[in-house]
């Protein structure tokens, strides 16, 4: 095992920069909400949120210096979330494909 892996202590500067980046992305997400991008508005909003979440997880939550197994578990949480969304949404999206038989 790598004994140095968790002894890495980030400098305060790193945390300040991460904080500033999160502030900038917050500003962008508010600004972009008022721009008419059609159906892309929600997509852009969620993309920015995913970027912000990744920054928080990587630097604040120390995934940057975590063991590989920890990163795998973090990723697994996201993958199961995607599975839940994919199965739920495929159901709702496909419901109209097959016409309901007339019950009477």
């Amino acid at each position: 095992m790598n004994d140095q892996i968790d002894h890495h202590i980030s400098p305060i500067r790193t945390y300040i920069i991460v904080f500033m980046a999160l502030m900038v992305f917050t500003g962008i997400t508010v600004w972009v909400a008022f721009q008419d991008l059609g159906y892309l508005n929600t997509f852009v909003a969620v993309t920015i949120a995913v970027i912000k979440a990744t920054i928080v997880a990587w630097y604040f939550m120390h995934l940057k210096s975590s063991a590989k197994i920890t990163r795998v578990v973090a990723l697994a949480g996201v993958i199961w979330l995607i599975v839940m969304f994919a199965l739920t949404m495929s159901d709702y999206a496909a419901r109209s494909w097959i016409p309901f038989p007339d019950p009477w």
Binding site: D3, D6, T70, V73, G77, W80, F85
Partner: peptide, 26 residues
């Protein structure tokens, strides 16, 4: 070692967070 102990506790917390992701995900 302390390193193993530290990684184990942090791994356990991430397992909890993974289920929290599913909880809010619902």
């Amino acid at each position: 070692s302390l390193e193993q102990q530290r990684q184990a506790s942090s791994l356990g917390m991430w397992v909890f967070i993974a289920q929290e992701i599913m909880f809010f995900g619902g």
